[in-house]
Design a protein around this nucleic acid. Structure first.
Length: 284
DNA sequence: CACCATGTTCCTTG
DNA sequence: CCAAGGAACATGGT
């Protein structure tokens, strides 16, 4: 359930649900889903720790933890990959087929489920050092963004996915932000003019903020009873109805009319990922 | 059977 | 060292 807005909404949901809870037992059911990949070491560090806070950095969930009596807190990172989900369920309910890690909290279990096993829970924090600025934060200025983009001739869409330039944009919101800014995904990053860089920066912030607002407003099923809990980026969500389907302007809308001008939305492939855009509103 | 999928990392080639 | 492209990871949906 990736991309910044989905992780943000998930962290806002998990924080009040997990704060103050103590991890009584750790069950690593998929060693690949955990770092260090020794299940014993991973479990030994976390067992007995209390969860003090859940927050987000880029597409990572950040769990702040503390062991009883110790002055120093420590952190665990969670990344959902493509298909990861996290939720709290009552003890005794049957575990999902692809439940990778289960934290027993007493009367409930905190579950990390991930059918494709691309996601990770990690006690190694080095990944954070490689990340660029938060797109909704103060360090993400047009000046910095423009200077960074100036180093690459690769297409702007591809560079929006580079987490060292801006952290948190994924394949869906990259297409959406470029449509919002009226910029072709095929333009070389270094050829964007200053006004286009400013416009794109604003579009990124708007698109992400609106997605967070949507995800916070729409009723989401967090109970993990079906596959739709917390999902609002794309596809079908529980109780969201048509409103949901109408949300995205270009992503996964190939052949359908542009909402602004009516032209057919196009799908192209860049760096082995799909890009969607309007050839009229986003000319080369 | 085919192709597609929200992400990241590693490898190769230039 | 860097840029760019492709494969790999593993499973499920259509």
């Amino acid at each position: 359930m990736p991309e910044l807005p989905e992780v943000e909404v998930l962290s806002r949901h998990l924080d009040p649900a997990l704060i103050g809870r103590t991890i009584r037992r750790v069950e690593v059911r998929r060693r690949k889903s955990v770092r260090p990949d020794s299940a014993t070491r991973f479990a030994a560090v976390l067992k007995g720790a209390r969860i003090e806070r859940v927050s987000r950095r880029a597409k990572y969930l950040v769990f702040q933890l503390r062991r009883h009596g110790e002055p120093e807190s420590f952190q665990m990172l969670g990344h959902l990959g493509m298909t990861g989900r996290m939720y709290v369920q009552p003890v005794g309910r049957s575990l999902a087929k692809h439940a990778a890690v289960v934290f027993a909290l007493g009367d409930s279990d905190f579950v990390f489920e991930d059918p494709r096993y691309f996601g990770r829970l990690s006690l190694e924090l080095a990944a954070l050092d490689e990340l660029g600025p938060e797109p909704l934060g103060a360090e993400f200025t047009a000046g910095r963004f423009g200077r960074d983009l100036g180093r690459f001739r690769q297409a702007i869409k591809v560079k929006l996915l580079d987490q060292s330039l801006v952290a948190g944009i994924g394949n869906i919101y990259a297409s959406e932000a470029l449509f919002h800014a009226g910029i072709s995904p095929r333009r070389p990053a270094m050829k964007l003019h200053d006004d286009e860089v400013s416009c794109l920066r604003r579009a990124i912030r708007t698109v992400l903020r609106e997605a967070i607002r949507f995800g916070s407003t729409v009723p989401l099923n967090w109970a993990a009873e079906d596959a739709s809990d917390g999902l609002f980026y794309y596809g079908r969500a529980a109780d969201a109805g048509d409103y949901y389907v109408e949300r995205l302007d270009v992503y996964d809308r190939a052949g359908q009319p542009c909402r602004r001008c009516g032209a057919a939305i196009r799908r192209i492939v860049q760096a082995a990922r799909s890009t969607f855009f309007c050839p009229v509103c986003q000319p080369r």
